[in-house]
Design a protein around this nucleic acid. Sequence first.
DNA 1: TGATTTGTTCTCCACTTGTTCTCTATTCTA
DNA 2: TAGAATAGAGAACAAGTGGAGAACAAATCA
Lengths: 199, 199
Amino acid sequence: MKLTRRQQEIYRILRDNIDHHQLPPTYEELCRMLGLKSRGSLHKHIQALVGAGLVEPMEGLKRGIRLVEPGADEGIPYLGRIAAGRPIEAVGQAERMQVPDALLGRGPCYVLQVSGDSMIDEGIHDGDYVVIEAQVQARDGDIVVALIDNEEATLKRIEQRPGKVILHPANPSMSAMIYEPQQVRIQGVLRGLLRSYAK
Amino acid sequence: MKLTRRQQEIYRILRDNIDHHQLPPTYEELCRMLGLKSRGSLHKHIQALVGAGLVEPMEGLKRGIRLVEPGADEGIPYLGRIAAGRPIEAVGQAERMQVPDALLGRGPCYVLQVSGDSMIDEGIHDGDYVVIEAQVQARDGDIVVALIDNEEATLKRIEQRPGKVILHPANPSMSAMIYEPQQVRIQGVLRGLLRSYAK
DNA sequence: TGATTTGTTCTCCACTTGTTCTCTATTCTA
DNA sequence: TAGAATAGAGAACAAGTGGAGAACAAATCA
């Protein structure tokens, strides 16, 4: 969202004046800082900044003017590793990875690191990073992150048939797995892949 | 769109005087800066610059004159496609691709799109994008972009032996190629890979 | 619990700012 | 030299902006 001049100015003043180690300022204090007399006026500006993603919305709380940590918005969350047989190892929150727009889906996305070779014939190798668009439905043939029996997460090509769901690995030494539909929860669809050939 | 003399002059003055760390100037301020007395006069010039893509359109808002950020610095150059058998098809200049830092080498890098399946066993598929670090030397086992006889470029795993250079494809239906060292020019080393599973 | 603080919503109004005109002067061009 | 293109001045306009302040509701405090 584009900011007007005043909004930019106010954002700059906020950045320069808000000490992150203290309590966030109240509207009243901010008004004084900005030379405003009306909280209502300030509120409009703050809303604009919230809309621009520069200020955290305060959901009902008081003393809520907090600046969004710059950079917190960059990239998409990196959630951990995925391997057949285990649930996604959650990584301590807040880790993010910068991903080219071209690899993103339309909705919210996250990144997992692939563990194992079950999809090697699809060119998905151990250690690759996959970009997953979070969604609960998939089309036949999509490669999805599926949670089975609420226990283990796996990356497989999906085939949905009446009364059963088939998960196809892409590895000659492994065979397809067949489940009841209610056993399988789709957690996202593969949208992109990243691999680093580090020096 | 072509710019008149005055428009070029004004654009240059804008570039030189607009400090991006300050607020974008209003028409009024710009008039003063340019020695104009009428906003109307300025407006015509700004419109011309907007048409030329040099200034952000204002979309009815009051947000001051902003120059279009030359995004030329973002991302790394996308040079075109690479396939065994043909030189790199140069793509019209200036195309760039945003790439995660993690996939970049230390030196200058560029992106190529892979054409063909000669490296399929390495998980490099037709249509994948590869990030190449531009360098003229490689270590044995590196996957490199090699220019052969100054004619054709190809992506292969390299093996350098006294008096000969072997380029290994990763495809059971293809066999290694052996060249004289002077036939082969290394143009870069594979550092990263991007694949999009578009919807 | 009642009083107060604090964020939110609303209306109202002044005025800034970008836009659109018309008119004129100057320069370039066929 | 006539005509076109370019530049600028200035008037008039409308929409968006920025601010004041009242009224309200929820959170917090006493």
